[in-house]
Design a protein around this nucleic acid. Sequence first.
DNA 1: ATGCGTCTTCGCAATGATTGAGAACAAATA
DNA 2: TATTTGTTCTCAATCATTGCGAAGACGCAT
Lengths: 138, 138
Amino acid sequence: MRSPEELTVAFRAAGLKVTPQRQLLFRLLHNNSTHPTADSLFGVASGLMPGISLRTVYQTLTELAQMGEIQSIEVGTGSQRFDPNVSDHHHAVCDECGAVHDVYVKRTPELAGLHGFAVTDAHIVYRGVCADCAGDAR
Amino acid sequence: MRSPEELTVAFRAAGLKVTPQRQLLFRLLHNNSTHPTADSLFGVASGLMPGISLRTVYQTLTELAQMGEIQSIEVGTGSQRFDPNVSDHHHAVCDECGAVHDVYVKRTPELAGLHGFAVTDAHIVYRGVCADCAGDAR
DNA sequence: ATGCGTCTTCGCAATGATTGAGAACAAATA
DNA sequence: TATTTGTTCTCAATCATTGCGAAGACGCAT
Ligand SMILES: [Mn+2]
Ligand SMILES: [Mn+2]
Ligand SMILES: [Zn+2]
Ligand SMILES: [Zn+2]
């Protein structure tokens, strides 16, 4: 996604208002590679802006997703995750710690056998144990 | 998954009872390639056995999944789907009609770049429009 | 066939994630 | 500063799924 400054301009240009809540979320999402859930973002946001509502977090995330600034992904962990990285990539989920890592694949396998299916998107979810969790014997 | 007859034996062998509800679900799942949700199965089951509860459907599906007879998959349609096909395969979801098709891929792309992540499973979800929906101009 | 112990079913409440609705509020602009 | 219009927040509602416990039924031993 674009920088908070660029988003500020983009929002105004789109007739949307730039509120403190939105600006905070712009900042929390910028360069964020943790693939946060709405609730985890709400947790961090609440610490910095007591009183911000979970509803507002959801709404802002939905808007950003509709504008194409972030993507919403589903990796099987129960709740939606949001990703400011909108480049073409996939994800690896650690079954130990729940971390979601970005994965870049050379060539996504083509669909074979399913004649007539027009693919618009393909998403690979890897599951396993991440380096951090494997490294430590505990 | 195995046939209803085989499952009957397997359940008894595991100390589980073979009830009419379970037998019905065994039959509804056998050779079922629709990737049903618990609720859609419940709908069909209710027609054949009025009074069966959604709770029982969920419970039986969970048991079958734990026994490895079916798998539970998440393709981003909001609810879990159950698949008696436990072979190594992937899925294509039609954004028009919601149908979920099986996809067999020659070689699942290896994880590159994420050093130390031990992959235990990889699942590809393709999205697009299926042949049926594309073919008909309506 | 009957009895009994254990496993199951079912209804209902509870949970967790997300969305809907509307009153109170605040950003943008003149 | 006043006005307009979009935003935030609270609270209720929804959807999928799970927890709980009383009532019921399977299956084995008589
Ligand atoms: Mn990502
Ligand atoms: Mn399948
Ligand atoms: Zn980990
Ligand atoms: Zn279709």
